[in-house]
Design a protein around this nucleic acid. Structure first.
Lengths: 234, 234
DNA sequence: AAAATTATTATGTTATACTTAATAATCAAA
DNA sequence: TTTGATTATTAAGTATAACATAATAATTTT
């Protein structure tokens, strides 16, 4: 376990403020004392005297670690090391409105990369029950594949189910976290070019591929499914 | 821009502590005052009196927001709203040693999904100069593709260059952030099954595909390139 | 008008005291 | 002796007040 090599709060690596330094010192302390999840750390006053700094600074430094999910504090019990949940943090910062356009576009691309690339995971783990469920979700989808209908609700249910099937919890949470961003990108004017009403693989088509195809055919189908989005991004 | 709907520090949604409440109040304040990146927020003492709470609480609440990159403080200038950088946070929490095995495995899968799925981005943006550079990187790779040599350094250079080519900064940073984790997974005993010395697409083979192939052939080649890892994970 | 000096300001830091919720210790009842 | 209620203790949470520091603005000097 290596807590070192972390950056300070400020962009530059030099610890500008005292809290920066103490924060690093604390991580250092965890390291040298070989502390792992569940272990308790000294109480605030002790750390304050031990590191020769006020309790306020200790608290502020510890608050940062707590915000990042590295420690947890309870009254009387003191503070303990915890398994951090990196994605939980990310979720809290994902306010689409305050991300700049470039980042939004990047994330939208990221989604497409993920869903095209997840073919192997899907075929490795999908069950007939999953396929049936997918068919149920797309049941109300219009047959006419020429028409680009965008039902946000079904969109979420369908693609969400795909993430579920991968059995990869990290991937799943990633998707849940990115959902509001996709929604935002669709609603904002970021996707400049108009929708091209050309032939594309429908949700139903994707399920058919999952039923009868293989990872390779799925990747191509998903690529085609996203054709419209690609055209509008590039 | 909607800052609401966020969770408090504690797992449960109810604000247990005063700081939790004030943190929410602050985000609420940003919302109702339609504050966007660059805008200044009232100084600490003002907020303290205005929200009827001590400056300590204000500072702790603001520190949380600052840790998440939502605000930035400078002496004399006060505090301003900023464009948060979600990934910066994530980077700080990515200590492989304190992530549990399941998460590590998930992330390793995630990498494969990303690199298989990035074919379209690559072909959309790759230049001849990029291809030349890739050929230079793999120049010292042994011709014998039967042999699974694992040069960690070259591995990083080669795959890192691929991420660069996508031109997707978010993706790129994602990779840099995940690097130590891949390294850790390789070194730990997580990849149980032994390496299968079967035929696989080499780095050089991938460059050839980038030179003469298309997104589809690239995805298949990359899938094959990862064959060993897949076999060891499933 | 430009440069050097001083004053001001808002965050950063310290110190101290008080509040609160969770745990431990104590004691009374069965 | 065990059980249950009561009290004490502890460590984090909160509140004030004061000082330090660096960045800016205002002033003076050249």
């Amino acid at each position: 376990m290596d807590y070192t090599g972390m950056q300070s709060e400020s962009k530059s690596n030099e610890p500008n403020t005292l809290v920066d330094k103490i924060e690093a010192d604390l991580l250092d302390y965890f390291n040298t004392h070989r502390l792992k999840a569940g272990d308790a750390i000294p109480k605030e006053v002790e750390l304050a005297t031990q590191l020769g700094v006020s309790r306020t600074v200790i608290r502020e430094a510890m608050l940062r670690l707590r915000t990042r999910g590295l420690i947890e504090s309870k009254k009387k019990r003191g503070t303990i090391i915890t398994y951090p949940d990196p994605l939980a943090l990310l979720e809290k910062s994902m306010y689409p409105g305050i991300l700049n356009d470039e980042t939004l576009r990047d994330i939208f691309e990221l989604r497409m990369v993920l869903e095209i690339g997840m073919g192997d995971l899907l075929f490795e783990r999908i069950t007939q029950a999953d396929i049936d469920e997918l068919y149920a979700i797309v049941a109300d989808e219009p047959i006419n594949t020429q028409e680009m209908v965008f039902d946000a609700d079904q969109e979420v249910r369908f693609h969400g189910k795909l993430y579920d099937i991968t059995g990869n919890e990290t991937l799943r949470r990633f998707q849940r976290m990115l959902l509001p961003i996709f929604k935002y990108v669709h609603e904002s004017g970021l996707l400049k070019k108009p929708i091209q009403h050309k032939k594309f693989v429908s949700h139903r088509g994707l399920v058919d591929v999952l039923q009868h195809g293989n990872p390779e055919t799925f990747r191509n189908a998903m690529r085609n499914h996203f054709e419209n989005h690609f055209q509008r991004l590039f």
